[in-house]
Design a protein around this nucleic acid. Structure first.
Lengths: 212, 212
DNA sequence: CGTGCGATGTATCGGTCCGATACATCGAGG
DNA sequence: CCTCGATGTATCGGACCGATACATCGCACG
């Protein structure tokens, strides 16, 4: 998941670790707190070793002139490579079970603007399925096993059930919108309407690799 | 977290691993899927080593009579010890930051029937604080950084914000109920009303250790 | 003028938990 | 008889977290 998120963010612009963490927090704030450095840095190294990202020195070249005490660690800016973009495309398109759990779905959803419509639909439906199953499980417990559980536990289940029902409804809307070819969200007049800026989902065409 | 959950469940009755996992899934179904065996068994061993739980052979004694091929592994039933109960009481009462994240709060809440009222209140308020902060973060992003983000990401934030607002309201209700001395949940006429069964929260008295 | 403090920035370590996998028993049904 | 699904215990590698350490920089306050 982290791998996918990093690749996705670096596609928007090169960044160093600290920045990456902040952007991640902004983009995924709805689903997870903030990525830990204990995950981030090792992952960056892994991605670099795999050739999916490369360093792009902060204050570049002029190398020699900073011998400095204790080796002067500067910020390291990473940028995505062509292979990295391919890797991202591959990760974003394939959906396993982990694509439908809370975190996995959140990350995929956050990059829907870079995902083709068929995949978006597939993922939304898979997520719906997952939540429907969770919902049925909760209903079962609240029905069949209710007298075995104390009032607090039951209240927790009720709250969870409510959240499931809400999310299913949300997903239904998104799926309907998706099918109708309309852009993302619920009808929100006045926003994202003008031909104002970039990164909206690709206007219902297709998505090539690059090569403009 | 797992440690707390296991100790809590074993307080209700002795169980073996498989059972533990199922009960855990039923009790915590609202917040997490199902605990992995890869966590469960090592944790059981850890708890046993610490003296907080002990084995209580399934089909006990008569030991000799099953030499069997490949050492005949039977189900291992665990029960909590006196030290284990102390440990549980200690864990359930102290609240650090991890008590307020989604999983931690869920586990604590699921055992509120074994938690004294002051602690319940403290935890509910801490959780509220945490969610309010998450909510403010989302509002910030939706306000200040909105034009930097694509429509899908924004929709994700909106959904998350909605969930936060809902949860805060839910917590407010629970806190109000808690303060008014009333039992657990929202007014649900007809349920958990009669002097029907056990494990409700200790009627607003106190909670001693045991020694009846 | 300095000095200390909070934001920025990189990095490691131990620990928790997950997912895949393996293997064994047992009852029901074809 | 034999397979299949539920029950049941167990391990291993990997993902991610939380605490911690350390270095730089700008600026507010004395």
């Amino acid at each position: 998941m982290l791998e996918l998120a990093i690749l996705g963010l670096l596609q928007e612009s090169p960044m160093h670790g600290y920045e990456l963490r902040k952007e991640l927090a902004a983009k995924l704030g709805a689903i997870r707190a903030a990525i830990s450095y204990g995950s981030l840095y090792p992952t960056l190294r892994r991605l670099q070793a795999a050739g999916w990202i490369t360093e792009a020195a902060g204050t570049p070249a002029t190398a020699e002139e900073v011998p400095a005490l204790t080796s002067r660690r500067g910020r390291v800016v990473y940028k995505i490579t062509a292979e990295g973009k391919e890797r991202f495309a591959q990760l974003i398109a394939q959906a396993g079970p982990e694509t439908y759990d809370d975190t996995g779905f959140g990350v995929h959803f956050a990059f829907f603007a870079r995902t083709d419509q068929a995949t978006r639909l597939r993922i939304l439906e898979g997520r719906r399925r997952t939540i429907e199953e969770r919902r049925e499980g909760l209903r079962d417990v609240l029905g069949r096993a209710a007298e075995r559980l104390d009032a607090y536990t039951l209240e927790l289940q009720r709250h969870g059930l409510d959240a499931c029902e809400r999310e299913v409804r949300w997903l239904e809307e998104l799926i309907a919108n998706e099918r109708s070819g309309r852009a993302p969200a619920a009808p929100r007049p006045g926003v994202a309407d003008g031909p104002r800026d970039n990164n909206s989902p690709p206007p219902p065409g297709e998505s090539r690799k690059e090569r403009p």
